[in-house]
Simulated scan of single mutants.
Amino acid sequence: MSDYIVAFESTYGSTRQYAEDLATRLGVKALHLTEAAAAIEANSTAPVIVLSPVHGPMHPGAKFVSYTDFGQRKVALCTVGMTLDEVAQKKDGAAKALGSKADSVQRFYLPGRLNYSELSTAHRTTMWTIVNMLKAKPMKSANDKMMINTFDTDVDRVDLGRLDEIVAWAQN
Score class of each variant (00 low, 15 high):
3 D>S: 10
5 I>A: 00
6 V>K: 08
7 A>L: 00
10 S>H: 12
11 T>C: 13
12 Y>L: 07
13 G>T: 08
13 G>W: 03
13 G>P: 05
14 S>K: 06
14 S>Q: 10
15 T>Q: 11
16 R>P: 06
16 R>K: 15
17 Q>S: 06
17 Q>P: 00
19 A>M: 07
21 D>Y: 00
21 D>T: 12
22 L>Q: 00
25 R>K: 13
26 L>H: 06
27 G>L: 10
28 V>I: 07
29 K>H: 08
30 A>L: 00
31 L>W: 00
32 H>F: 03
32 H>S: 13
32 H>Y: 00
33 L>Q: 09
35 E>R: 12
35 E>G: 05
36 A>G: 09
38 A>D: 12
40 I>F: 01
41 E>Y: 05
43 N>G: 05
44 S>L: 01
44 S>R: 11
44 S>H: 06
45 T>K: 14
45 T>D: 14
46 A>Y: 05
47 P>V: 02
47 P>K: 00
48 V>R: 01
49 I>C: 04
50 V>T: 05
50 V>S: 08
51 L>Q: 05
51 L>A: 11
52 S>F: 08
53 P>N: 05
55 H>N: 15
56 G>C: 11
57 P>C: 08
59 H>I: 12
60 P>H: 10
62 A>S: 09
63 K>M: 09
64 F>W: 05
65 V>W: 02
67 Y>G: 15
68 T>Q: 08
68 T>V: 11
68 T>I: 07
71 G>C: 04
75 V>N: 05
76 A>K: 03
78 C>T: 01
80 V>W: 04
80 V>A: 08
82 M>N: 11
84 L>T: 09
86 E>M: 10
86 E>Y: 12
87 V>Y: 14
92 D>M: 09
92 D>W: 04
92 D>A: 12
93 G>C: 09
94 A>Y: 10
95 A>S: 11
96 K>Q: 12
96 K>P: 01
98 L>W: 01
98 L>N: 02
98 L>I: 02
100 S>F: 10
101 K>D: 02
102 A>S: 09
104 S>E: 08
106 Q>C: 03
108 F>P: 00
108 F>W: 08
109 Y>K: 03
109 Y>A: 04
110 L>Y: 02
111 P>C: 03
111 P>L: 02
114 L>G: 02
116 Y>L: 04
116 Y>G: 09
117 S>I: 00
118 E>R: 12
118 E>T: 14
122 A>Q: 14
123 H>G: 03
125 T>A: 15
127 M>Q: 06
129 T>L: 13
129 T>E: 13
130 I>Y: 11
131 V>T: 14
133 M>C: 10
133 M>S: 14
133 M>L: 15
134 L>A: 08
135 K>H: 03
138 P>K: 15
139 M>G: 00
140 K>R: 14
141 S>N: 05
141 S>P: 08
141 S>F: 01
142 A>H: 09
144 D>N: 13
145 K>M: 13
146 M>V: 06
147 M>N: 09
147 M>G: 02
151 F>H: 15
153 T>E: 12
155 V>N: 06
156 D>R: 01
157 R>L: 12
158 V>Q: 04
158 V>H: 09
160 L>E: 04
165 E>P: 01
168 A>F: 07
169 W>N: 01
169 W>M: 11
170 A>Q: 07
172 N>G: 10
